[in-house]
């Protein structure tokens, strides 16, 4: 990893932006930087230059562990049939409001 850095583009960082307070941080893209302070500044210059950002996270790309597409069956399917987690599962008399 260190030898690759010596090539000079710096590490790859994933950037997450929050567009207003209370909103979740969402992935915006990635940038290159040698360290976290420059990564934060670069992310600000690249992704906040149109002024629609209130908060930024930068994460070294190699620190992210992603699920694998092969997992998609066993990993996510079991949640699919738990309809009792959705409000529509429960019946209430039609006349009742505010439920």
């Amino acid at each position: 990893m260190a030898t690759k850095d010596m090539f000079g583009e710096g590490e790859l960082w994933e950037v997450f932006i929050q567009k207003e307070t209370g909103a979740p941080h969402e992935h915006a893209g990635s940038i290159h930087a040698a360290d976290s302070e420059l990564a934060l500044q670069n992310a600000r210059d690249v992704f906040a230059r149109r002024g629609e950002v209130v908060s930024l996270w930068v994460v070294p790309a190699n620190c992210i562990t992603a699920s694998s597409p092969d997992d998609s069956g066993p990993f996510f399917d079991p949640a699919d049939d738990k309809i009792y987690r959705h409000p529509q599962f429960y019946h209430v008399p039609k006349a009742v409001k505010g439920m």
Partner: peptide, 11 residues
Amino acid sequence: PILEEDIALAN
């Protein structure tokens, strides 16, 4: 020197 800096200096 690096693309990110083109953007920073322009800003």
